[in-house]
Design a protein around this nucleic acid. Structure first.
Lengths: 336, 336
DNA sequence: CCGGGGAAGTCAATGGATTGACCCCAACTA
DNA sequence: TAGTTGGGGTCAATCCATTGACTTCCCCGG
């Protein structure tokens, strides 16, 4: 900046005013300064800017998953790419970290906050009894919780969520219409808030219809557990006629397993994947799936965070209910 | 820090010396200062630190892929998680950005550099005729190129690479031994350096053995193109008896397509996937695959970068050659 | 008893951008 | 003509940690 000031023959303050579109310099000078800056390829040092109270121009994103669970899930990269799109417009950086568990995640937030490294964070995989919202509220670190149910206890946080309950209801609806009465839901990690929501809704829907042979089994989202659970439930005397998998990976593993066991999909057993990805169209039969726009989900979350950073109020935003895409893996229950 | 100085009854300089393990304060004072700092949960502001010449404590990572190509690939998340592991030890942040193409990527590097946002970067997907190494060299931004061949022209950059040529040779070896003479390689993006290396090696290996019906076809890595190319080549009068896919996604799509066309895998056509992921064990037949440790790949790259940041020399490191894991999708060529 | 030397600290400058306080001059008003 | 006003700028302090230069004080040797 000193350089620019010199070459443009003005003071550093004038440069600052000129480049930030603040009054105090004539249009002529402003233009001259702009040209010099451009020519020098100057960009304000984020560090200096931050010291002068402008914030870090960075938001944080922590993924708390063991490294090996991380692989195949397409959801996160899509989410991140949506987030990026919005952040990039405003030249906000995304500081990304992978940790083992929520405890470590909290430590990361603490450190980031103490080091003034980020202006806000995006929190994913909210849990039942989650320590993070409390911590963030306490620190006063602006945050958007992605995928959580609205939470009255932390008015400082924004929430962006999908209506899992509604989606689950529509899946059950569809399966019920097709004559399915024995349904198993191969759910994800037990501690996650959306897992709980899906499980609860499924139970409620079953009760409402008087179905007794409907249940949820929690897993770790891996293909291995997906296959194992499938094998177990299909081995019963009265096996389920419909399976709902909480992600695409388990669904594919499930179909493969079912086929190996001699079950035909969808003639003997229908399958629904909770997450529509390329994977669902890569195997035969094509998987019926719940489709949501993960990229848009990310965009929405990022937009909420920037709004928060601009001093806006915390809000709760619901993205569209995931839609059931019927493909080849669902059909009428045998004998229905 | 002022706070700490006050409470410990010393000057700010003393605090700095104490906390950074520099001489100039007694052990007693050092301890006192440390305790006060701990108690206050103090961490140095990265901004201030950076302003005093310490660097940004951050490395950058840009992914130049269109959002929709991003989804299913398990490689990157694994790579990133390995990178993280090493960076986290040294409390280095990872600034992550997704962009559309290499041009945008260069712009990002320019901006990061001008803003002093990162101390170094990790570059993935090197290309033939790549503008990035030149730019980074010119800027003097420390960088590690991941997956590139050693490049003499840019002595400032480190390179971490896998021996694609050797791996391809071993695949061809294996297939040749099984009696395959007509082989099609469904490659990835044409501009990428490792694609070129694989294509070249395949051609060389074929010539060496006098095989004339061996070729590579480039794609965009998507399941759609993988399926399309599979359909095309299997529709020929003399279809190939072995297919090598440059990633797991295309391999799975390919197997599905082949099966639909009435080809049995591996009886009619053998399939090898260049990337061993959960996917390869989720479909039947299980896919034979080239396995490399992507997480370790990331670790190695990150270690090279930290070495560079510590003032070490640029180096070229080769990670172990990917190994062929023989599963169910490869077998003797019919009639061999 | 004095000077030299080292351990333990303090002072103040530094880095880059922002910003409140102030200054100068031309033009306009009474 | 004196006084006011406002546009166009400048000065210097500020944010926070680091660091080279300097000061104190104590101990030891001569």
């Amino acid at each position: 900046m000193k350089d620019i000031a010199q070459r443009a023959g003005v003071s550093e303050s004038a440069v600052s005013f000129a480049l930030n579109g603040r009054p105090g310099v004539s249009e002529v000078t402003r233009d001259r300064v702009r040209r010099v800056a451009e020519q020098l390829g100057w960009r304000p040092s984020t560090a200096a800017r931050q010291l002068s109270g402008e914030g870090a121009a960075t938001v944080g994103f922590v993924l708390a998953r063991p490294a090996d669970t991380l692989g195949v899930d397409s959801f996160f990269l899509q989410l991140v790419s949506g987030i990026q799109e919005v952040l990039a417009e405003r030249h906000l950086g995304l500081l990304f970290q992978v940790v083992e568990d929520v405890t470590d995640e909290c430590a990361v937030y603490r450190r980031w906050w103490a080091e003034h490294r980020v202006d806000g964070v995006l929190v994913v995989d909210p849990r039942t009894d989650d320590p993070r919202p409390g911590l963030l509220d306490e620190l006063g670190l602006p945050a958007v919780v992605i995928g959580g149910a609205p939470d009255e206890r932390h008015p400082g946080l924004s929430t962006v969520w999908a209506d899992d309950a509604g989606a689950m209801a529509s899946v059950v609806d569809e399966l019920y219409r097709l004559g399915h009465r024995r349904i198993v839901h191969i759910a994800g990690l037990p501690g996650l808030a959306h897992t709980e929501r899906r499980v609860r809704t499924l139970r409620a829907e079953a009760e409402r219809r008087g179905l007794t042979e409907v249940e949820s089994v929690t897993t770790d989202y891996s293909d291995a557990e997906g296959a194992a659970v499938t094998r177990r439930v299909l081995g019963r005397p009265a096996p389920p006629t419909a399976l709902i998998y909480d992600n695409d990976v388990m669904a594919v593993a499930g179909v493969t397993t079912a086929t190996e066991l001699g079950f035909s999909v969808p003639a003997d057993v229908s399958v629904v994947a909770w997450e529509d990805s390329a994977l669902c169209r890569m195997v035969r039969p094509w998987l019926s799936a719940l489709s949501r726009d993960s990229v848009e989900f990310g965009r929405t979350a990022a937009r909420e965070l920037t709004a928060l950073l601009d001093g806006g109020p915390a809000r709760t935003v619901r993205v569209p209910v995931p839609q059931v895409i019927v493909r080849e893996s669902t059909g009428a229950a045998r004998g229905a």
